[in-house]
Design a protein around this nucleic acid. Structure first.
Lengths: 169, 169
DNA sequence: CCAATATCAGGATTACTGATATGT
DNA sequence: CACATATCAGTAATCCTGATATTG
């Protein structure tokens, strides 16, 4: 994974694309989409590595933070899936793994007999704080990126998320 | 997956972050990293959906394109893994699936008795062209993004990839 | 003998489909 | 009864860690 190529493979692909399919082909879009894939892959690897010593994956960490930031430290499973933007069965899966580690507890929803609440435990909060410190220490994988570039990126990505329909406003 | 929230969840997390851990916390980095995750997730879903009618995933499509763009339409397995930036066993896996669909053939490397070459077949090239047309049709999932934003994004991501050590120059 | 190439076996994680039990 | 909530079973995809056979 840590092989440094003597050229930018995506830049090269972009040129090949243009020559093969002509200037009408969306080669800028191709290069950008591929870049997002690659940067995310690298980022996730860094984030996962940072929280791994605390017995977490980044996905589980996100679930813990979501609960920690919730009003009573608990949310219905449906909300967990919705806010993490994952499949309901994936939410079940993640919460079950957190529960088996004692970081989360499951309780019936008093407001809805069909529902289940995921509740963060004190141990879970502790673990979340430790993992957060680890992520802060590596600047969430963006230590090499300047403040200016970060903010620019943040604005661009926010526009994209909004256009994709993640949120209204 | 298609639930539109009345607010930007990442923006909200960013504010909570700042209040909870103070202004020294890298909340801009947190928000940016999370945004990359989310945008990638959405993008990959769109790209996978576009190539699915052609019996491909985006990962397999990338492998096909890599071979199609190679000198003789073939590459050693080690190069496949390196260029796609995936684990060697993942390369084996992907090429085997492509081979079982007749899109790729495996051959011993005449230059190195230990090695295996992955070679794209005529059927594979055809399939690649069809999938490419499908991806062109949706502008690689970036139809909603302006040319200007795309180019800006492309430059930022390129810098990040370079800093991460993907390529030299 | 040591290193490189590639594969296999097996475990872990996540996504998704379809079926199901329960409750509104 | 129709619908919603959540889980479960099973399938698929990918990543990773060893172990291994073969060759340079």
């Amino acid at each position: 994974m840590n092989v440094k190529l003597p050229f930018d493979p995506i830049e090269r692909a972009r040129e090949l694309w243009r020559h093969r399919w002509g200037d009408t082909a969306p080669y800028d879009a191709m290069a950008t989409a591929t870049s997002i894939m690659r940067v995310q892959q690298r980022l996730l690897a860094d984030l996962d590595a940072a929280v791994a010593p605390h017995g977490l994956t980044f996905a589980r960490y996100e679930a813990l933070v979501l609960l920690a930031f919730s009003r009573q430290g608990r949310l219905p499973m449906s909300k967990v899936g919705e806010r993490l933007m994952i499949h309901p069965t994936s939410a079940t899966n993640i919460v079950q793994r957190l529960a088996s580690d004692g970081l989360v507890e499951r309780a019936p929803n008093p407001r809805d007999g069909r529902g289940t609440l995921a509740c963060i435990t004190p141990v879970g909060e502790q673990r979340m704080e430790q993992a957060t410190a680890a992520l802060h220490a590596i600047d969430f994988g963006l230590a090499a990126t300047s403040d200016r570039d970060r903010r620019q990126l943040w604005r661009l990505l926010r526009t994209m998320r909004q256009q994709a329909g993640d949120f209204a406003k």
